[in-house]
Design a protein around this nucleic acid. Sequence first.
DNA 1: CGCATAGTTGAGGAGACTCAATGGGCGTGG
DNA 2: CCACGCCCATTGAGTCTCCTCAACTATGCG
Lengths: 285, 285
Amino acid sequence: METLIRFSTDELGLEAFKPKSRSIDNLPRISSSTEQLFALCGIESRQNLNSSIHKFLHVRIKAGRHIYLSNDKCEMIYLVYSGFLKSTWADTNGNEKVLSFPMKGEMVGLDGIAHGKFANSLKALTDSELIAIPLQFCKGQNIESEIFRNHMISVMSQQLVNEQKSSFIISSLPVDAKVAKFLLSLSFKFKSLGYSEKSFLLRMSREEIGSYLGVSLETVSRTISGLCTIGVLKKNNRSIEIMNFDALKKLKRLPMGVTYKATVRSKKARNPKAHRAVEPEKPPT
Amino acid sequence: METLIRFSTDELGLEAFKPKSRSIDNLPRISSSTEQLFALCGIESRQNLNSSIHKFLHVRIKAGRHIYLSNDKCEMIYLVYSGFLKSTWADTNGNEKVLSFPMKGEMVGLDGIAHGKFANSLKALTDSELIAIPLQFCKGQNIESEIFRNHMISVMSQQLVNEQKSSFIISSLPVDAKVAKFLLSLSFKFKSLGYSEKSFLLRMSREEIGSYLGVSLETVSRTISGLCTIGVLKKNNRSIEIMNFDALKKLKRLPMGVTYKATVRSKKARNPKAHRAVEPEKPPT
DNA sequence: CGCATAGTTGAGGAGACTCAATGGGCGTGG
DNA sequence: CCACGCCCATTGAGTCTCCTCAACTATGCG
């Protein structure tokens, strides 16, 4: 997460508010060297690598298409090079849940390693480009493989923690806080990638947000509208502008319905709507 | 999960219904060899290992005590040798959420690898014994370390998937189904370990179950009581007997509140309490 | 220029939460 | 050995959040 590096930042990633234009210097590569791969991963290596041995192919994928589906054989894992993705899991009844929205620099497909086939599906929300990393490489005995493997272990560990965090959010916070946290985490990611943390475009539908957060799409819509009403946000369809970070951050740590062992259960919680929103802060005018 | 092996099954694990008695042949070891470690992990290796090089110390821990706390330095990961544990995560406000209930054969502490300190806390629900695996060993260059590392990667991948599954359960299913799934997964685990899948003792409180499932403790209690009423379960405090596996399994796949893109939203859902329980099946008399 | 998809908003209801009181088990101490 | 107290579990009553259904609007695409 923090290991994301500012690597040719403007390359792609968010073409944010100028969709579909692609200037000539933004042309994607066909393949990356080990060094390039490592740089994008955020691996700092003091070893002198034999950069020419391995070439990692880039995979381009159109918006709306799947990179892989659940149960597909897993022979590669991927590093997001550009674009916005969506990872989902489906139960046996075909009910889908969105698990994450991978962006540039993130590794995807790690769920496929255990059994040699993917547990999740991965879909492109925008035209995207991924670097394919053969499992073979991950398992290799050479120095590059070993360095990468160590990194991979670290990433998996981190992903585990992230899953747990979002599990907490999903199960313990009221909608307002869920949405606030979601927007803040997006904002943080954008910032890490060198884009505006203040205004950005949601690449996913309300329904997808809802699925991710474990609430209905209407509730997501209402919550975002509510945040606009109290002046914390401005929205225009999928474009979001954060007007008041502090309020949003405060919101995210407000009481909860379901919390286990709430240390001191705030008596203010009795006051209806106490956690519904931050103090309107003297609504603008 | 499926890789759990039947390794000296009766050793400890569940002393189930005869608490606090410990027969002489149940005495825990002080340390394990690589082979023993691998066996408990479920690693099958055709290589001839130098079993005597590494010794893995066992850590014994009393019920109610912590093995590690969030932010503790992570120098070891652990393999559960016996007993029942609880892993929790706490946000900055001190609100805890239960993440898992590790049992024999499960690896814990993998969340600590990324940053060298644990993200979660681990507590013993019963007297337990863990095998400590130094990170040093995990990172080693010898053949034993490499085999173990591969296994560890696989385990992490699997844990990632499991997290995602339970995230789905938490966010998408009604309480009844949550509890049903929970009990079934416990039952399955017990069976894997060679114990009764039909009747067992819950080692955790209603509150802990609630935290794990993202519902209140009262709701857990009510749901379990409800399952008893319709004859699917028998309970006596923390001891559970499953009377009707099919009903429980059916229950777990019933409609849901929050489902994202429910393929065909069953119209029966309009019927109040449609998912409240399975058909009472002509309640016993 | 409509049709389809996505988003908004309202009304009403159901599930699950909170608060509160009761009862059972178990350990401790008189 | 019983009594007391503590913790956990159960159950009830009332309420609130969030869901569902539904109608309407905006946006984008052919």
